[in-house]
Design a protein around this nucleic acid. Structure first.
Lengths: 336, 336
DNA sequence: CTGTTAGCGCGTTCAA
DNA sequence: TTGAACGCGCTAACAG
């Protein structure tokens, strides 16, 4: 049987003071006589007392909880974000709810609604496909939200992301500089803004090099290994293609696999570039050339902003654009 | 300005009934006249009312929240667990706190303490290194806990895991059957029970085949790509080694990378087997032979047990041992 | 079927 | 520096 937990009242009685005094002692509010404090500490220890946060939340209106809402935690990039957020959150005693949506807009809204009911202090969203106005509605109702990788309405909801277009351009330029001219692109899911931004960066680079953009060379992936694998299969039928830029590392890994399995050597016959710079990407065969995203920095900035918002402090800057950087490893080489 | 949220009292007034009736209507408790229910629904919709879960938790003593405590979410195996848990949790309106410990026992205990204060309905723990009695203490205090991959005290805390020893034996036997005799092992962190279990399975197989276990052939990894990479470097100095069994897929991937980079061909010169069967492992070069763990099943069982425990229902079975299975792909072959 | 009345455990006035 | 009293928003008896 679980015995009833001691309450602040039990502590007060044992220490011979009022609950108000105990509360103050526990929260460091107001002045407490050293002797009283000692009595209280004793009582707390003796009883094994721990404040009930539900009761506390009811009066303070803060749950010391934030939420992270994203499509899929099995994508290591998202997982990397978690660490940074967690770290920052823990500093202020915040705890983190993780909610995965599988890219389903209804589930996104359902979760947002649930999170509001739970009175979470705020939510970090990434990769949502829900229409902007369905999101800002929650903000207007008082639920602080910070966006990653998608500009909803940055006067209202802060935004943190890398410059995706620039990153994609860097990747493509790298391929161009090596001498490639027929460069395929494995795009992300069509309903995600970052997919478009990365396509645009790819186009920018090609155009700047005076190369016509051939829509045939763009295949739709899904940001997964499987998607990259399939897309690479489709694209590699076009034998004049000598390089591939995948919109994220997971698809690049899938592409690597497809290419090698169909007997094409990387990078000798086909070069591959990814996007994300997962920890994993240093260990592929061959090690993957990719565009680095500072996941830790993104996470910390976002968490910082959210906590700022949640505490009612004014947010000095609503948008953070971090810079991506090309990391050259061994999956790229001049065409043969 | 965030306007004050409507309370159950506002709804009651607008609908012209008492708060008790509103509460009943909202929770489906007791019988409500259709007409009254309609009035209430109207009022709720008109006000945009959402119950305050903190207040509800205070009286029901249930937060509809569970927690998952593990070392590192960037390990895709753990990430895969999350999906299964989430899915099961959402069915009953439960939400999931994610807490990562980085393998630090102090942080583990700190989190457990925080979670208890938060009145979570229960916690799922995996990969903890905290001594058993420090964990059972929380259980005795009324915090339901379910363990994954580590038997703390299975009369008190349910356990769900694959048979690690068997899995490791299967992997090693596969190598043995291919004709390998000098088989290295990349172990997991020394303070984790599953590391030992997998080492034992490896030893079992060798002994059964009449091969002496050479401690020199066991290197300590860390369940990460980096750890696998380093360990493989060390082991591959022993040139008579023709096969490697890594205690998880991430280290196997690191090993693959180290091997190929030092010019050894896989599987022609060295065979590699992993453990976990990550989604990713189908896409390595070469595709990884590994031991399958049913992550989804593990997750669902564990979540089920926890929810059972949390609701006070009796748990019929305290231990679930799931069966691992060998998945042969292309990273293993007979020695040359 | 519905209303009245108590709390759930805590922070926070306002006095003392 | 401390205590009494109130209320946060909701559910759960107990009457009716």
């Amino acid at each position: 049987m679980r015995k009833a937990r001691p309450t602040i009242y039990d502590v007060a009685r044992l220490a011979g003071v009022s609950t108000a005094t105990v509360s103050r002692a526990l929260n460091g509010t107001g002045q407490i006589a050293p002797a009283t404090r000692a009595m209280i500490d004793d009582a707390v220890a003796q009883l094994g007392y721990h404040p009930n946060t539900a009761a506390r939340s009811l009066v303070t209106r803060s749950t010391q909880t934030i939420a992270l809402l994203l499509p899929d935690i099995t994508n290591p990039f998202y997982a990397a974000l978690v660490s940074g957020i967690q770290e920052r959150a823990l500093e202020t005693g915040h705890t983190m709810l993780l909610c995965t949506t599988e890219g389903d807009p209804e589930r996104e809204e359902q979760y947002l609604s649930l999170l509001r009911a739970k009175q979470v202090d705020g939510v970090l969203v990434d990769g949502l496909v829900l229409p902007p106005d369905r999101i800002t509605r929650f903000v207007r109702e008082g639920l602080p939200i910070v966006c990653l990788d998608r500009d909803i309405d940055s006067t209202l909801v802060p935004l943190v992301q890398v410059d995706n277009r620039l990153g994609a351009r860097l990747a493509t330029e790298h391929l161009l500089e090596l001498g490639h001219e027929r460069i395929g692109h494995i795009a992300g899911p069509p309903d995600l803004g970052i997919s478009d931004e990365r396509i645009e960066g790819y186009r920018d680079a090609l155009r700047a090099a005076g190369i016509a953009v051939d829509p045939e060379l763009i295949a739709v992936g899904s940001f997964t290994e499987e998607g990259g694998y399939e897309a690479a299969r489709v694209l590699s039928d076009k034998w004049d293609l000598t390089a591939l830029f995948a919109a994220n590392d997971l698809s690049a890994i899938g592409a690597l696999s497809a290419l090698v399995q169909s007997g094409r050597r990387v990078p000798e016959e086909v070069s591959v570039v990814g996007f994300d710079d997962l920890r994993l990407s240093r260990f592929t065969n061959p090690p993957l050339t990719t565009v680095h995203q500072p996941a830790g920095e993104i996470a910390r900035h976002a968490a910082e902003l959210l906590l700022e918002l949640a505490s009612g402090r004014p947010v000095e800057r609503m948008r953070y654009f971090l810079e991506p950087g090309l990391v050259v490893r061994s999956s790229t080489a001049p065409p043969s």
